Structures are given as C-alpha cells and as structure tokens.
Amino acid sequence: NDEAKKEAEKLWKNNKSEDEIKERLERAGISPDEAEQWLQELR
C-alpha cells in the first residue's frame, strides 16, 4: 500500500489528473474510499 501511495504522490507532482491517480491506486488494490482520502491528503 505504501508503494502505491508513493506512486500516487509522484503522479500528483507530475500533474496527473486525479482520476488517473485514483485509477492507479485502485488497480494497486486500494479501495476507492481510501484512494479518495489519499488524494485529499495530497491536495
């Protein structure tokens, strides 16, 4: 999970869309709710 979150953070810094980041997190096995929460922390 931490690995996926690091990846999400990297994508965020590269200005990827939130949808793309969420999709990537969900593919890594993170629930949509958790993915949404993680994005809010990044904002």
Rank of each mutant, 00 (worst) to 15 (best):
33 D>M: 11
21 I>P: 00
27 R>T: 10
34 E>L: 15
5 K>V: 04
26 E>D: 08
30 I>A: 03
43 R>M: 10
8 A>F: 07
15 N>G: 15
31 S>F: 02
41 E>P: 01
26 E>C: 14
11 L>E: 04
33 D>G: 09
21 I>T: 03
30 I>T: 02
26 E>A: 12
30 I>R: 00
28 A>F: 15
1 N>D: 09
24 R>C: 15
26 E>G: 04
22 K>H: 02
36 E>G: 03
12 W>I: 04
10 K>R: 13
10 K>F: 13
43 R>E: 03
14 N>Y: 07
33 D>S: 10
35 A>M: 10
36 E>R: 05
25 L>Q: 00
24 R>P: 02
3 E>H: 11
34 E>Y: 03
43 R>S: 04
12 W>G: 02
32 P>H: 06
6 K>W: 07
14 N>G: 07
12 W>Y: 12
4 A>F: 09
39 L>F: 05
14 N>E: 15
25 L>T: 02
17 S>Y: 04
40 Q>Y: 07
5 K>R: 12
6 K>Q: 10
10 K>S: 10
26 E>I: 14
37 Q>N: 09
14 N>V: 05
8 A>V: 08
41 E>V: 09
33 D>V: 12
43 R>T: 05
32 P>Q: 08
4 A>S: 04
12 W>S: 03
7 E>G: 03
3 E>P: 05
16 K>S: 10
9 E>W: 14
31 S>D: 09
9 E>Q: 11
32 P>E: 08
26 E>R: 12
26 E>F: 14
43 R>K: 13
42 L>R: 05
24 R>G: 09
20 E>C: 15
25 L>A: 03
6 K>H: 05
10 K>T: 11
22 K>V: 03
4 A>Q: 07
7 E>H: 06
32 P>K: 13
15 N>F: 08
29 G>M: 00
40 Q>N: 11
23 E>H: 07
5 K>S: 02
5 K>F: 15
26 E>M: 14
22 K>D: 00
17 S>A: 05
19 D>R: 12
14 N>F: 07
14 N>S: 11
17 S>N: 09
10 K>I: 13
19 D>V: 09
39 L>H: 00
14 N>C: 15
29 G>A: 01
9 E>T: 08
27 R>K: 14
28 A>Q: 11
7 E>P: 01
41 E>L: 10
29 G>F: 00
15 N>T: 03
17 S>R: 05
28 A>R: 06
27 R>A: 15
9 E>I: 12
3 E>C: 14
36 E>Y: 06
43 R>F: 08
15 N>W: 04
32 P>R: 10
40 Q>G: 05
43 R>C: 12
8 A>K: 01
4 A>R: 06
17 S>H: 05
38 W>G: 01
23 E>A: 11
25 L>G: 02
23 E>N: 06
1 N>R: 15
30 I>L: 12
32 P>T: 08
41 E>M: 11
7 E>T: 07
27 R>V: 11
40 Q>W: 13
8 A>S: 03
2 D>Y: 13
38 W>L: 08
34 E>G: 02
24 R>I: 15
22 K>A: 02
5 K>C: 08
16 K>H: 15
38 W>Y: 08
40 Q>S: 11
13 K>D: 05
30 I>N: 01
15 N>I: 02
33 D>I: 11
16 K>Q: 07
5 K>Y: 15
31 S>H: 09
23 E>P: 00
16 K>W: 14
20 E>R: 02
35 A>N: 00
20 E>A: 04
23 E>L: 10
38 W>P: 00
3 E>M: 10
12 W>N: 02
32 P>S: 10
2 D>W: 14
31 S>Q: 07
21 I>G: 00
